[in-house]
Design a protein around this nucleic acid. Structure first.
Lengths: 343, 343
DNA sequence: GCGCGTTACTAACGCGTTTTAGCAAAAGGA
DNA sequence: TCCTTTTGCTAAAACGCGTTAGTAACGCGC
């Protein structure tokens, strides 16, 4: 079955034209004159022979790989339990497909980040890259500013001059917390989605603080815990909160995935939602609406986020220069379900 | 910052040798004689100049892209809600990284599958591919047998002569169902993970049937429902079961993700787990152990599955001929938690 | 019948590697 | 001394495409 590869040369010979003509026709190059008769013959011959251009040769010649990288920087364990990744990939896939671009998932290990970004850029396997959940302390990121590969971040890093796509985490967290305040809660705890190095964390916890301050409620640091993405960390945080001695009637958990564990800890302590404790989540993962009771949460438009990131990146790649530091902020929405009640 | 690309020519000139020598040294080609003095000089010069080989040129010349494809065939919605994908990706990433191979996620739309597989193969962007959750009616799969790109399936298709990696779904489902039988249940319902076209479905439902038959319990077709991967379909199936009039005291749900929805339907009907209904799941997604009550389920080694698939594929790529029809079956384990009780 | 513009192509180079074939010098053996 | 190996390297040919510069043929106006 190892029938020989069909190259553009074969097509050219079959029609009796040059390879150049074949290339011009098939790539639909504008501003070039080829009789529609020849065009048709080329197209037909190509189809007949089953000609599929060799992607690597194309890439070498055109200096475009038609592939973009999704770069993950977290640990293997965190990737495996990331309730979010499927949506990102789905979003990326849909807009990439439309533009006839492929997606390369790459994983940069925590240890040698600096050189990894550098290599990623110089290897030229991809035309651009999307970095998900950047960290504040990622010094390697700074290097990216000077690297010539278009990059967009999913999630903002304040003092970095790169284009990014994000939601307004501060506002979203405020919304969630204010909702609890409006229900009359005054002792509201907070469990973050991740450690402080991840940019979304200070933003969301900040929003929580803002909401309290605005309502004239003093912020009690003893009611704040920092989780680490997965349910297990949520479980630990909630237990710590419960054992901490500080009283609370509501909790804002800045990640639904974390909330899964947090909820379990409440249950274990024989506390009921929403009767004993009100709970607001963040993300609106599929589980949220089938949770018992259905979880009130902030809906984070993950797929749109990915799609925007992808579109922005592709613009960047084609413009070469254009919107060098564009920022896209998407809206979030509070989905009220049944995990909260008035005090 | 557009400093010129460093090519192997630059390295060669700096050391005063030919490009060939540079290539031989840097690729550590065996059976070739180069003085260790020259070797060292080349390595140093490469590092000094920051030489990173151009992946596309490498691919064109060596006819190896050092990339494998993960091909998804389901709908966008199903990809977005796939609680499984992160583990697959994590598993793939770890073994791929070790072998210095990249992962390309590709999505073949349902409509034009046949040509899509063909193109994927001839494009030569990838050295091989992994197909996840194949479907029985995928006629395009047959074409894959004759295509010259190494392929491994995650999930078996009985009459297909391709290497695959899978768990013994029949046995696993038997294990789960038998567990319920042993607890004294006789009216056991079953909700599948997916429609019948997906190969795991008939296998798992088959295992459920086997267990009943072996215990001398007649199979009641009215107690079987077919879900569609996501929680929502699980919710629908359970509701349908509840409204179906047939009595049951236990349910085997062949997917934890589906169980999320099924559980919600039970709750809505004011039925308690395990007091009113015992529940066994399948997959052991992170949620399972933090569910209330913690879900007894079959642990499907997703990451190992992905790793095996990746290893097998890479073997196939390198051997060219070797284990052409290898099959790897991984073990599953029943994780007993608290969602079941004796009648 | 000459100049000029347009139409419809092609020759040839470039992309940055890997790979094949081979060669000069040094070493070893008789 | 002459012949054969071995050692250490190189020149040149792929690899399969994109692209630039250029040209042949033709029509048209004068």
């Amino acid at each position: 079955m190892q029938r020989k590869r069909v190259t553009s040369k074969d097509v050219a010979e079959k029609v009796g034209v040059s390879r150049t003509t074949v290339s011009l026709v098939l790539n639909d190059v504008r501003g070039i004159q080829i009789s529609s008769e020849t065009r048709q013959k080329v197209v037909e011959a190509a189809k007949e022979l089953g000609y599929v251009p060799d992607a690597t040769a194309q890439a070498l010649a055109s200096r475009r790989t038609k592939a973009i990288g999704l770069v993950l920087t977290r640990s293997q364990h965190h990737i495996a339990t990331d309730a979010f990744l499927p949506k990102i990939i789905s979003g990326l896939l849909t807009t990439a497909k439309k533009q006839n671009v492929r997606i390369l998932v790459d994983w940069v290990e925590t240890e040698h980040r600096e050189s990894a970004y550098f290599e990623l850029a110089h290897t030229k396997r991809i035309d651009g890259m999307i970095l998900s959940t950047p960290r504040l302390d990622d010094r390697a990121l700074k290097a990216l500013e000077r690297v010539d590969v278009p990059t967009v971040l999913m999630g903002n890093v304040a003092d970095l001059n790169l284009p990014f796509v994000d939601v307004d985490n501060v506002k979203a967290a405020e919304k969630a917390t204010s909702y609890l305040v409006e229900l009359g809660h005054r002792n509201i705890a907070c469990i973050s989605s991740a450690p402080l190095e991840y940019t979304a964390t200070p933003e969301r916890v900040g929003g929580y603080r803002n909401a309290l301050v605005r309502a004239g409620i003093p912020v009690n640091e003893g009611l704040i815990r920092y989780a680490d993405f997965d349910p297990e960390s949520g479980y630990r945080c909630m237990k710590s909160l419960l054992q901490g001695g500080e009283r609370f009637t509501a909790v804002f958990v800045a990640s639904d995935n974390v909330a899964i564990g947090a909820k379990f800890a409440l249950r274990e302590a024989n506390l009921h939602i929403p009767d004993d404790v009100s709970l607001v989540g963040f993300d609106d993962i599929p589980w949220a609406q089938y949770s018992d009771p259905p979880l009130t949460t902030i809906k984070l438009p993950a797929e749109s986020l990915a799609q925007s990131a992808c579109t922005l990146l592709l613009d960047l790649i084609h413009d070469d220069i254009g919107n060098l530091h564009q920022r896209i902020i998407l809206d979030t929405e509070l989905i009220v379900r049944k995990s909260c009640r008035p005090v």
